[in-house]
Design a protein around this nucleic acid. Structure first.
Length: 384
RNA sequence: UCUCUUCUUUGAUA
């Protein structure tokens, strides 16, 4: 079991989907895929690769799934932005532990569904530091930074994550004074915090200072390297961005996707596609980035083909495709897709609406405009 | 020095 486990983990590190499938087939062949521990690893592995079908099948093959199995299955869905199926799994779970509740609360929070997130918190049988950190973030994301700070002060325990969360929230909301104040009081500074500081420089348009700081840092992790690559992209230095990517010791999906977007923005569609093809495995984010790359460079048909090839689609992927049609003045198809989202069980958001409206400006018939207006009213966006 | 899952930093849509 240990041998198989390490083999699966190796795939996870290299994020190689084909290697993952080979191991999976091997385990299916000898029946070890029914083992809970190994099955759990497979569920997680396919989830991380954005292959939710295979993840679910691995889950279904486990003879006696435990709470870990259920939680990993939930995480696979939430990690790919599939709130719908995550909820379903959560509801079906025979036994929920604190991890299940925390995961579901965070899933709502990330989807910006703050009321259900608060509801989860209230319904939880007990709370741990993770729950407190997560609820603190719900408040800050929903705009109540003061409430978040009050929570931070009153929380029964705090970890380094609590501190890092608040610094990041202050920084993102441009309360730089508060961010610095927090930073100075932090008892222990880790890599996450330093990466946050680098991001502050990038966010305020000081890319060169960000790069200098990164180079002065004693340690760098993959996030640091990715941020460095992004900094070069931001100053329009594609050559050094590519160099930064090539120097990244352990590139992950974000490293590749950053380059896909960078090439696309410079109109280098071929390079973008090469980067995409070189990825050992592709998650929903990567697929969506490539769909948008085609769309933004005027290749709507290629965008559509790739969209249909995607193994999993979430809200953002759909929005990207709606926008693709909108930007290319095919308002009718954009609206059609917009309505299809509903049928697919995707909860539309304001971006879906704006993207569909984009193509409506002149070419779309009045009837389609009415559909969107009705949707806007329903969503409560009619005042905007 | 990686006993499987949940919190904070980097990558996708307007």
């Amino acid at each position: 079991i240990a041998t198989y486990a390490s083999a699966i983990r190796l795939c996870g590190n290299s994020r190689s989907l084909s290697a993952a499938r080979r191991i999976r087939d091997h385990l299916v062949g000898n029946g070890w895929d029914r083992n809970t521990f190994l099955g759990n690893l497979l569920v997680e592995l396919f989830g991380k690769c954005g292959s939710l079908d295979e993840s679910r099948r691995a889950f279904e093959r486990i003879a006696t799934p435990n709470t870990y199995s259920w939680n990993i299955m939930t995480a696979a869905y939430t990690g790919n932005g599939n709130l719908h199926d995550a909820r379903r799994i959560f509801a079906q779970m025979p036994e929920k532990d604190i991890v299940s509740w925390n995961a579901m609360m965070t899933a709502y929070s990330q989807a910006r569904h703050f009321l259900p997130a608060l509801d989860m918190f209230d319904k939880m049988p007990q709370w741990d530091v993770w729950s407190w950190n997560a609820i603190m973030r719900v408040y800050s994301l929903s705009g109540s930074l003061d409430t978040a700070k009050n929570l931070f002060d009153k929380m029964p325990q705090r970890t380094i994550v609590s501190w890092n969360t608040l610094v990041a929230e202050y920084a993102q909301k441009r309360h730089l004074g508060d961010a610095v104040g927090m930073f100075e009081k932090i008892p222990m500074r880790d890599m996450v915090l330093w990466n946050e500081v680098v991001m502050v420089f990038l966010d305020v348009g000081m890319a060169n200072e960000a790069i200098e700081l990164l180079e002065a840092m004693p340690q760098r992790d993959t996030v640091s390297w990715n941020t460095r690559t992004k900094a070069f992209v931001q100053i329009g230095d594609l050559v050094n961005a590519k160099r930064s990517f090539d120097s990244t010791p352990k590139p992950d999906l974000a490293s590749f996707t950053t380059m896909v977007v960078a090439f696309s923005q410079q109109g280098k569609l071929r390079n973008a596609r090469e980067m995409f093809d070189r990825m050992p495995c592709r998650d929903t984010v990567a697929w969506t980035a490539m769909v948008s790359a085609y769309a933004q460079n005027g290749h709507v048909n290629s965008a559509r083909n790739l969209f249909h090839e995607m193994p999993e689609k979430n809200l953002v992927s759909w929005n990207a495709m709606v926008a693709a049609y909108g930007q290319n003045c095919d308002g009718a198809t954009a609206v059609h897709l917009f309505r299809l989202m509903d049928l697919e069980g995707i909860q539309v958001d304001s971006i879906s609406l704006v993207s569909a409206l984009d193509g409506c400006s002149s070419k779309t018939a009045l009837a389609e405009g009415r559909i969107l207006h009705a949707a806007a009213v329903e969503l409560g966006f009619d005042q905007d």
